[in-house]
Design a protein around this nucleic acid. Structure first.
Length: 383
DNA sequence: ATGTTC
């Protein structure tokens, strides 16, 4: 058999590439180029950019990819299991003591409770990274107390058991060092290469991946518990979704692999799409069957400026102190000044436009908008 | 994103 005919045999139709974003949602050209590069990987069937699409390290963030026959741990990235959890807090928003909480609340270092017992309650095995369980982490991670700004769909809101006058707690965090260790072990052998799905190595990765997803969910639950202990309120978990993962899915009669890289699920019920700490967050309910968007939604506002650019530009215009309050009069706990600048609201795109794009694409309906009361980042001053 | 930079 000639080389040419072999290539013909192996050739598969190009993957579908789709960017779901209106012209008003500016998307960097580099992010689209990254999306197209991923679409050319062997086995790829679809590459979908959501309205918060932005460039990442090799692969774009705010995107979902489906493949057949093999999958790519590199596309999931290091923070396997990262996602958003929402809690209904048993406290009226008007009873908030945001200023006092901002000075007292502390969620740092290893939890001094029964970590193993907590994991057992969550049905998760220990990983060896329990020293970080119950910590928010860095970058864009946070724990945020919110009040209901407006209810847009009273029925869907009530079906979630929510009340307009009660506080909510949104936690964005992941698997800390655990996911990082799992990706590193893969990259050491395969770099950005994929795994043949029907192989022992693929099964071993998926076992570790699934553990990291469960551990990350437990991590968010422990962060929530520590915040709630700090403010002295009970709470009920309303939802918890993962936006960095790879999962099997039957589609068009074939077994496919759905990679989500900063993409919320459109097939697990309502999700929260957070803005920056100085913007509204949106509680939305998926609409439609998800086939045109790889069963995924935007996971946030998406960066407008790189971390370096944000530090430089925002330092010129704002003091660190002024950035601990927002236009919503909410408080920000972030004693690391660089992080305070990097994560300033000005560094992010407008969440309103991102959500409007999803509504206009027929992917979601807005259930409620949520406003920040207190955003917890870190007490640590290390830089 | 990262017990983050060996």
């Amino acid at each position: 058999m000639s080389t040419a005919s072999t290539e013909t045999t192996l050739a598969s139709p190009a993957a579908t590439v789709r960017v779901i974003a209106s012209p008003q949602s500016w998307v960097e050209g580099e992010a689209v180029r990254q999306l197209e590069a991923v679409a050319r990987l062997p086995g790829m069937k679809a590459a979908v950019g959501l309205p918060d699409l932005h460039p990442g390290k090799g692969a774009p963030v705010g995107a979902a990819f489906t493949s057949e026959g093999l999958f790519y741990p590199y596309l999931v990235g290091n923070d396997i299991g990262c996602g958003m959890g929402l809690w209904d807090v048993g406290m009226l928003a008007r009873k908030s003591k945001a200023e006092r909480w901002a000075s007292k609340l502390e969620v740092e270092g290893p939890w001094n409770g029964d970590v193993e017992g907590f994991l057992a309650e969550e049905g998760v095995k220990p990983s060896g990274f329990e020293g970080a369980l119950g910590t928010v982490g860095g970058g864009n991670h946070f724990a945020e107390l919110q009040r209901v700004d407006a209810v847009h769909d009273a029925r869907a809101f009530a079906e979630l058991g929510l009340e307009a006058d009660r506080l909510l707690l949104l936690v964005h965090s992941g698997s800390r060092g655990l996911g990082e260790a799992i990706l590193r072990a893969h990259v050491d052998r395969h770099a950005a290469g994929g795994l043949v799905a029907d192989s022992d190595e693929a099964r071993a990765y998926l076992t570790r991946h699934d553990h990291a997803v469960a551990w990350a969910r437990a991590n968010r639950a422990l962060v929530a518990r520590r915040v709630l202990d700090g403010i002295g309120a009970p709470a009920r978990r309303v939802l918890d979704v993962c936006h960095n993962s790879v999962t099997p899915r039957r589609e068009d009669g074939a077994l496919r692999w759905l990679h989500r890289k900063g993409a919320a699920p459109a097939d697990e019920g309502p999700v929260v799409i957070p803005g920056s700490r100085g913007a509204l967050s949106y509680l939305v309910a998926p609409v439609g069957d998800g086939t045109g968007s790889a069963y995924s939604l935007a996971h946030g506002a998406g960066r407008k400026w790189t971390r370096t650019a944000a530090r430089e530009r925002i330092k010129e215009r704002f003091t660190a102190e002024s950035l601990t309050r927002t236009s919503f009069k909410s408080h920000v706990v972030c004693e690391n000044k660089d992080l305070l600048f990097e994560e300033a609201p000005q560094a992010y795109k407008a969440i309103d436009r991102v959500v409007t794009d999803l509504v206009e694409a027929g992917l979601v309906k807005v259930v409620a908008t949520l406003a920040p009361v207190l955003t917890y980042k870190t007490r640590s001053r290390e830089e």
